[in-house]
Write a protein that binds this DNA or RNA. Structure first.
Lengths: 199, 199
DNA sequence: GGCGTTTGCCTAAAGGTTTTAGGGAGGTGC
DNA sequence: GCACCTCCCTAAAACCTTTAGGCAAACGCC
């Protein structure tokens, strides 16, 4: 009997491929066992449970994205860096929709702290070096950027933009223009004071 | 034997409550049957399959959000309307995390076209009446706003903001300030032309 | 090279979810 | 009072998750 050479890492990579091919919701321990031509129970020597598989795929995706961002940011600044960052994010989601979906898996705090998510926020902060933003506005801006990228890519992938007129590619570029403009002209505190009507 | 009075609508409401209480991933046909104290197979007279249950909960959530937005927008304009819209979205997600998660369920095109999603984009467009934006910038702006709200709320709910310093509530208000400012000073086409480096 | 130990994949089995097929009883309409 | 339809039921097959225990291949050691 030939050994299949399984390990948690190998399984995570296999699961990531499976996610991209069949969708993240199709990633099950059973499907993964079929893919490696191995019995289901065998995977449980490497994975505590099916949740761990999903988490490992998520971590893999975060790592890959962080690597790409890191490479894309080298030697860029200002709007150039902003656009590069944004495009890495979007391209990755289009190339690897299953991995991208996996990256939305909620992580428990310790796992999150040890993940590449930390690199992501550091790199986002690095982009803002090209703009004159002090704390706490810097953090607000990071959260805004993260939200836009995350939200846009999710909505585009789910088809929300595919039934109205302008090409999402065009909107994407104009949105980046707009964010650049916003970061260069970040408004001072409470210009008119109407925004606070939460409990 | 007393009849339970089931119907697709009743099941969707029950499923929505279940989602808020236990999380959307806990919404299964079996769990719903337990909740109504009924045998699992009985639900299949009202639902084609478990996917339909999820879709119905999603549609319910979209409807409820649209109703709230509609009420919140009445008599407001400009930044006031923008903040109201944004807060409805965020408050709903915090009050009904399960329903909000359900609302992310991908819909097939016909279902989406018949859903309250259409009302959402109409209302977003209505907000922009308070700002001087022509097409196609109006559509770009709608997509930006949708992305920010969707992204921010998703990230906040998943805990991404809960481990760094400024209160997410504060960032939220400043983000709305920033969006208002951006909409009032929407940049002209391609101020510097660096944003297009996609294949 | 033999020998014990570890490792890796196996069989077996229990429990949960999804879905289909068909049946019986409760309420409705004539 | 009878037929009918609706609603919920039992039964059963298929699939996924997870645990327990076994056997044989690989590894390390002498």
């Amino acid at each position: 009997m030939v050994r299949a050479g399984l390990s948690a890492e190998v399984l995570a990579r296999g699961g990531a491929e499976l996610a991209d091919e069949e969708g993240f919701e199709a990633v099950t321990v059973s499907a993964l066992a079929r893919r490696f031509d191995v019995k289901v129970a065998s995977l449980y020597s490497h994975l505590r449970n099916s949740q761990e598989l999903k988490v490992r795929i998520a971590l893999l995706a975060l790592e890959e994205m962080a690597d790409r961002v890191s490479a894309a940011l080298a030697g860029r600044a200002g709007k150039d860096a902003l656009a590069a960052f944004a495009n890495v994010y979007r391209d990755y989601a289009r190339e690897h929709p299953g991995r991208f979906a996996a990256a939305q898996t909620p992580l428990d705090p310790e796992t999150a702290a040890a993940s590449a998510g930390v690199r992501h926020s550091q790199m986002t902060r690095a982009i803002l070096r090209g703009y004159a933003l002090e704390e706490p506005d810097q953090t607000h801006a990071i959260r805004l950027l993260g939200s836009v990228f995350q939200g846009y890519v999710t909505l585009e992938l789910s088809g929300s933009f595919s039934h109205s007129a302008p090409d999402p590619q065009v909107s994407w570029e104009r949105v980046i223009d707009a964010l650049d403009s916003l970061l260069r002209n970040w408004p001072a505190q409470a210009s008119e004071g109407v925004a606070d009507e939460l409990p």
